[in-house]
Design a protein around this nucleic acid. Structure first.
Lengths: 151, 151
DNA sequence: GGAATGTAGTTGAATCTTAAACTGTTCTCC
DNA sequence: GGAGAACAGTTTAAGATTCAACTACATTCC
């Protein structure tokens, strides 16, 4: 017994919950990503970007806001938008009122690609997550994730 | 109303739970990864590898089994183990009974690095996850993740 | 008005990940 | 015992991500 033992460890149960969580996370994400990629050529992050844009006023968002909304670094978003632009799903427009800024704008092709991808993707989400849970479990899961998502 | 509308969409509540889940996942993972990296120079995956090895018989595992245990592709594991070997935390040993195979073996340095990293990391996990939840919520979270982790 | 500081976004290089092809070994089954 | 399939692991190259440095505009505050 040394002085280093004073860290509070996780209890056995907490440990097992934590490991389940890590495995579930990693499995859900990689399966959904693989399927989405195979069926529509979009990664999960790309899909998320298109969803955010499609729901925004004028189907456009400033880079910074978009980065926050899909939780990626500015730099990663820049590269990602460049790729989406190459695919023709997004286009950049300079901001007139803040000349540092750009809008990322959803194109018609991007909207169509999102529509096509969504059907299959939603089915997988349902199958991979919600079909496995009771309504009560979903309710608690919502509360829990609500508590965990806050920074 | 077209024929394409027959996909069962997510209900409003499900949708909001799903989005919380995605945000929580991504925040938890990136914060823990950042902190772990800063405090100990290990990524979350590297940490997971060292944990698996430390708990295995003889502090060693076959590559395939290790890859399954931390849920990464064989290829990624190969690269990752190469890096860990360069850091001196793991060494490879050829398998005597199956000449295709290798053991990844935890070194003394690797064990020490894991020990150092664990203290801070566990504290963050507690702080980032368990401290935000009631015992009941933890219990349900465990059931839910148990259901979701299965392939 | 202008120096200092903060913010938006991009760039480039190093690092990491992925996917497919490949080597060498073991297993199956006739 | 040997052909063929399956398995363990690595390699390679392309593509993605990260990190720090950088440009350009906006804000603040004297």
């Amino acid at each position: 017994m040394t002085g280093m033992d004073t860290v509070e460890w996780l209890s056995g149960h907490e440990q097992s919950v934590w490991r389940s969580l890590l495995r579930a996370q990693s499995r859900i994400e990689s399966e959904l990503d693989r399927d989405l990629q195979r069926d529509s050529g979009l990664s999960l992050v790309e899909y998320g970007i298109l969803v955010s844009l499609s729901e925004a006023e004028g189907e456009r968002m400033r880079m910074r806001h978009l980065a926050d909304s899909v939780i990626v670094s500015k730099s990663r978003l820049t590269h990602q938008i460049t790729r989406l632009e190459r695919m023709g799903y997004v286009r950049r427009e300079p901001c007139t009122d803040d000349r540092r800024g750009y809008w990322a704008v959803l194109t018609a092709d991007g909207g169509a690609a999102l529509g096509d991808a969504a059907r299959g993707h939603v089915a997988k989400v349902r199958e991979r997550v919600f079909d496995r849970l009771t309504p009560d479990q979903v309710k608690v899961l919502g509360e829990v994730m609500g508590a965990l998502e806050r920074p």
